[in-house]
Design a protein around this nucleic acid. Sequence first.
RNA 1: GCGGAAUUGGUGAAGUGGUUAACACGCCGGAUUGUGGCUCCGGUAUGCAUGAGUUCGAUCCUCAUAUUUCGCCCCA
Length: 421
Amino acid sequence: MITKQKGTTDIYGITGKKWLYLNNLIEDICRSYNYDYIRTPIFEATELFHRGVGETTDIVTKETYDFKDRGDRSITLRPEGTAGVVRSYIENKMYGDATQPVKLFYNGTMYRYERPQSGRMRELTQFGCEVLGCDDPYIDAEVISIPVLLFKMIGLRNIKVNINTLGDEESRNNYREALINYLKPHINELCEDCQKRLEKNPLRILDCKIDAENEILKNAPTILDYLNDSSKERFDKVKHYLELMDIDYEVNPKIVRGLDYYNHTVFEIEATVKDFGAQNVLAGGGRYNNMVEMLDGPSTPAIGFACGLDRLMLAIEKEDIELNIFNQIDCFLMYVSDTEKDMAVKIVNDLRSNGIICDMENMGRSLKAQFKQADRLNSKFLLLLNDKDLENNVVTIKDNVTKEEQKINIDELLDYLNVNI
RNA sequence: GCGGAAUUGGUGAAGUGGUUAACACGCCGGAUUGUGGCUCCGGUAUGCAUGAGUUCGAUCCUCAUAUUUCGCCCCA
């Protein structure tokens, strides 16, 4: 038997219905925010991701799906959505569009070569939004409010919005230096991994699980102490707009969001659901004012977030949230003889082309089993055909809730269903 | 890249180095001659992830592989 690849999953059945529901909800929300849909390719030039992320980290060296195509081009399956969107923004010169800022959303699969665990797949699905060409602090708050609204509409209660700022370049560099100077004398008191991080990625040390209770880290300087006036003012405005939108948040200086291209606002929304697992960040993002320029575009402020749908689905299941999914049909047609079947085909075809959701028997079941099938499909009405009635152009329709049944002329069937569904 | 746990029908699973691999749900059929859901009866794994090995004999023991799962690292 050929089985699915490690870290991939099949979505079908009731989960498939939930999936469609979520995707529709996402589309509706993004439309209400006036974000336009963008679909970029699943594979891009390897260099796009390498330049965006920086060559040093593990990410590039071992966590992307890289391969050479037949033309010997170096190709990478996209590990995230932002780089492709930014590439498209530059390539299609969207910075020249009449309507600014450019507000985009995407929804698609991403690929990361990692060991799977709870909430971590090799093929994952993320939806995300990006706003390019706007530095208004309100936009930062707006971008945060999108996943917050999504979670609220789904009914997820146990979530926490963490925000932080990395400040502008000056603030960030000053802080980085101060942090290294503070930690250096204590280096031997930190865990092995953190010792390695000190030069490579010192901000990451703040988020270490092993050293979380270490007094040294608790007393470490935070970025908030090193913000210059303009960065501080900017952050205050973001918070102000979040408050205007009644969004509960917590300022958490530990949120650093890994990579270099972030500045100013960064945020993560985590699931605080019981037994959720180690990978509990449902959505995260931040401002990346340098990235467009890094990818050879004009200097353009930008901010965005990405939300992992697989994790979101996990949270929905852990919380036993009932989504308002579509899981029933209007009518199921039952018959036994061949002449009855011919009429069933005509009727079912006619009903479907008039928007009635219906199905018919196709397995040669006994009538008894056909009733069971209709129940499994949650059919609101049952249509029973028999040859004797068909001679008079009549069928039996049974309301599967009240169990009342009546004979009805086939010509009146559509009207009857439209009124009673 | 590193580590722990797991893998038995459609599903949940019990079980044992030795005849026919429990039980339950589901499904199919019948009792009910074309009106179900209750009840009763019958049918539903030549098979215990795959491949080697130990053994007279392996689903059970050993090893390898795959997959699943949970962590670590990393987190775009």
